[in-house]
Design a protein around this nucleic acid. Structure first.
Lengths: 210, 210
DNA sequence: GGCATTGTCTACCATATGGTAGACAGAGTT
DNA sequence: AACTCTGTCTACCATATGGTAGACAATGCC
């Protein structure tokens, strides 16, 4: 396992720099397409230094997953702490995720990549994100019970929203194939369209107030 | 390029057998995880025989994409030829796709994998599926113009539906992480839940008749 | 100063993999 | 029978890649 000697001088502990580069590369280029050599040289190191901190590529992936899940959770923390409810809350969270997808595409990419890799990587990510998922699931249940949203299976609703958001955020090539631009304005337009779609699916017209 | 000598005796032309195995393996295990050696040995051949029919792995992928897109199109052909309209048509098509996902998971997997690989593979797949996408896009526009569905951007609606369906169909590990079973009954339940979600999003309550 | 610890590097290694060169067997043709 | 074409195989190669072994410099402790 990693040495994790985080009390280090200099421009940041080496292991943290490695993790940062790994998150970037695993999330954007993918696990297979990331060689320890290229990762090391991008940091001005050699592969052996990486293997000093992380005893194998698999272990580096595991540590990267932990970090990615932590950052994802942290990014949502603030918004989730606000006492919003109903559709407004869904909208606010989706907006945070889209902002994240724009600013930190590697984070969303990592989630995608890890689900692709299968166990044990997927299992690890799933466990790390479990609290978040449980929270979301519980939220939907409450909203439905309160009659503010249409009845759906919370898990499958989550799954659909997850697929839609990550797809919209990371299936860049599919979007291009559909003739979609990639500039910031189109990005916001897509976000708003997805929100409208979700709202139409979740909020029954009788209860809408806008 | 391939020799494509389809007028051949025996249990099927070798190139077709290779393509079949490639579709299976690329779609399930992925492109990188499929070596020409393993592909060949699963066919009782050697790698060199594959390279006789397809001059490189990339070219094999291209041919596999063409075949996959063709099979996908064919699978939808019949349902699309029926004179249905409105929500019923959407539902019928989604059901066909889910059935396909159950019976030929490698086909959906290939689409997923190819979008991940980026150009030129993605471009090829996109071009091959373009007629299908255009048809779907036009259908939604007509339905919206006729007032049978809520107004949404057809392309983004398609993108969302695509993400949701392929996610539901191939993100098996995510589903497991959410505590979802993988038996046939759960599969149908997920399909029906997704359909309800889509219907709520697309069909306004004033126009529903069931 | 001596010594242990830490972190990085040079040198190698084993293996997997895409691809090339060319031998060779069988079938059809003349 | 000689010849050509087709399809498969054996042998080989170049390269990339994860990982091991151990040298070496710096740092801090005694």
């Amino acid at each position: 396992m990693a040495k994790s000697k985080s009390t280090n001088p200099g421009s940041g502990a080496t292991d943290q720099r490695i993790l940062g580069a790994a998150l970037e590369s695993f999330g954007i280029k993918g696990y297979d397409q990331t060689s320890l050599d290229s990762l090391a040289s991008s940091l001005g190191l050699t592969k052996q230094s990486i293997l000093y901190w992380f005893s194998s590529k698999d272990e580096l992936l595991a540590a990267t997953i932990d970090m990615g899940a932590r950052q994802l959770t942290e990014a949502l923390q603030y918004q989730l702490s606000l006492p919003t409810e109903g559709w407004d809350r869904v909208e606010a969270v989706v907006k945070v995720i889209f902002r994240l997808a724009a600013r930190r595409p590697e984070l969303i990419g990592l989630v995608r990549e890890v689900t692709r890799l299968g166990p044990p990587a997927t299992t690890r990510m799933a466990e790390a994100l479990e609290p978040l998922l449980k929270r979301a699931s519980g939220f939907f249940e409450l909203e439905m019970a309160a009659g503010r949203m249409r009845r759906h299976e919370p898990k499958l609703l989550l799954m659909t929203a997850y697929s839609a958001v990550t797809g919209m955020a990371s299936d860049v090539e599919v979007l291009k194939a559909l003739g979609e631009q990639q500039d910031a304005r189109s990005f916001v337009r897509r976000r708003n369209e997805l929100l409208r779609l979700l709202r139409d699916a979740l909020v029954s017209e009788r209860l809408e107030d806008r």
